[in-house]
Simulated assay, not measured.
Amino acid sequence: MHLGKFTAKYLIPIGIVVFLVLFVIGIKFFVIKVGVDQVGVRTIIWGVKRGLVQKDYGPGWHRAISGIDQWDLYDSTVQTLELAKHPSHQGHDERQEAAIRTADDYDVSADLIVKYQIKKGHAWKLREDLGVGERYKIIVENEIRDIARSVLGKMTERDLYNPEEKRKRADAFKVQLITRLSDRNVDIIDVLILEMRFDPQLERKIKNIKLAELDNVLNISKALAAEERGITQTIDADTEAIAQKIIGDKERSITVLDAETTKQTIEILAEADKYLIQKKAEGDLYKEQRVAEGNLLIKQAQAEGERLRREAISGMGGDIIVAMEAARNMNLADLNVSSLDINLLDVDEMATRFGVSDIKGKLRVDTKTFTQIQEMLNQPKSTDAAKPK
């Protein structure tokens, strides 16, 4: 009973330990892990199908039985080969700069950076062609140095400090490197020429050539500047002449416009005066005509009145007028009249006494006729005051 409890108590931990040991042994001897930045190549060394498996294995866990499977792992990322005098990283990848002999027989060293990558799906073929290891890196470096000597060695001292020429050489470098390594299962990403260093003799020569070119450029620039100053002075003189001409034309135009304006003003004033005189003459003529017509009407009225007066005086009315004049000139204050003999209210009798008579010896004068005769007698003799002015 106690033995059973003891067995049950320690059986589970022992089982877990045995499982972990078997799991570790299985991982170590039966599987392999390919990293995310790696590609695996498998070779079957024992079994029915022996030899290199023509397939690349990507990241993950794969069968790797010891004594049956052999694995080779390669870098699947973009790799950098730096051939420089002072590389940016230290270690086993350190390289010396590329040595070049130019077409002018000068020694030049170049710092190069080449980006490359194993072709996708061709890692097994790289293993088949070159065997185990990283021999492909040595091949890439040798090809780079050889192409650097052939491509960059064609440059002359003038090309060495020409940026455009360096870019052309880098492009030609990349094309040749791609062509050569296409059968080596390697893809060239890019080629960059960092720096080119010359020996002291060539550097002095290039410096002298560069200074001579700069002096030539400076002299040309001075000549162009002098020429431009002459052109500028000519332009200034031409501009000043044009400005003076414009000012003169402007003043002449103003004078001409002023004269034309004055002439037009005088003509307008003359026309206005002429119109005013004409209208004034027409007004005076019209006034004289109206005055003459008025005077004529006055004369005609006076003549007609005189004629009527004469007719009135030549007839029976003349006696009445004489009687009226006598009566007007009578001073009643000094006259004694008997109301028994004379009735002052009897107009007919009074008219008869003043000399007015008719065929029958008595004239009847109505009040209306008497009033008209009296008004005619009261009119002034002269009508000069009634004339229009």
Rank of each mutant, 00 (worst) to 15 (best):
G318P: 14
R184W: 14
D105N: 15
N216C: 03
R95K: 12
E375T: 08
K115G: 01
G15R: 05
I44L: 08
K168Q: 08
D183W: 00
I254G: 00
T102H: 02
V291C: 02
M330T: 10
N216M: 09
L192D: 11
T7Q: 02
P13W: 15
Y10S: 06
L340D: 15
Y275S: 12
M1V: 12
W124T: 00
A259S: 13
I144T: 06
R167D: 11
G35H: 08
S221N: 13
K9N: 05
I268E: 09
P200G: 01
W71L: 03
I27D: 02
S253Q: 11
D93E: 10
V17Y: 09
L3Q: 14
L276P: 03
T262A: 10
A123T: 02
T80W: 07
D384F: 02
R145M: 00
F370A: 13
V48S: 14
G51E: 06
H86E: 14
G47E: 05
V24D: 02
M324L: 15
Y57G: 07
V347W: 06
L202W: 02
G315H: 03
L192Y: 10
I139T: 12
E228V: 09
T179P: 00
M330V: 05
I320Q: 04
A281W: 05
R229W: 01
D319G: 04
W61Q: 06
K263L: 11
A312P: 04
L276V: 11
S76M: 00
F6G: 05
D72M: 12
K389V: 08
D75E: 12
R328E: 12
Q374D: 13
L297M: 09
Q70H: 06
L296R: 11
N208V: 10
S88Y: 08
D37Q: 01
A110M: 01
F29I: 04
V21Q: 09
Q278C: 06
I231T: 04
V347A: 12
S314E: 07
K210M: 07
V347C: 02
E251K: 08
I193M: 15
E94I: 12
D69V: 04
I373A: 10
I188C: 11
N336F: 15
I100T: 08
R127P: 05
I147D: 11
Q96E: 00
K381C: 01
E128N: 14
N142S: 10
H62K: 12
D236H: 00
I298A: 05
A385F: 09
R229K: 06
A237E: 12
A241L: 15
A326F: 05
I189K: 10
A84F: 01
A84L: 02
D187S: 14
E282Q: 11
A281T: 10
I266M: 09
A123I: 03
H89N: 13
D215R: 15
S339I: 08
G318W: 06
K33C: 06
L3E: 11
G361L: 02
M155Y: 00
R184A: 10
A172H: 02
E325A: 13
R252D: 00
L192M: 08
L332R: 05
R101S: 08
K119F: 07
E164C: 00
E251R: 11
L177F: 07
A64Y: 06
G294Q: 09
I144R: 05
E293C: 01
L308G: 02
L20M: 07
H86L: 11
D129Y: 03
T156L: 06
T80V: 04
Y161F: 10
K55I: 04
I313M: 07
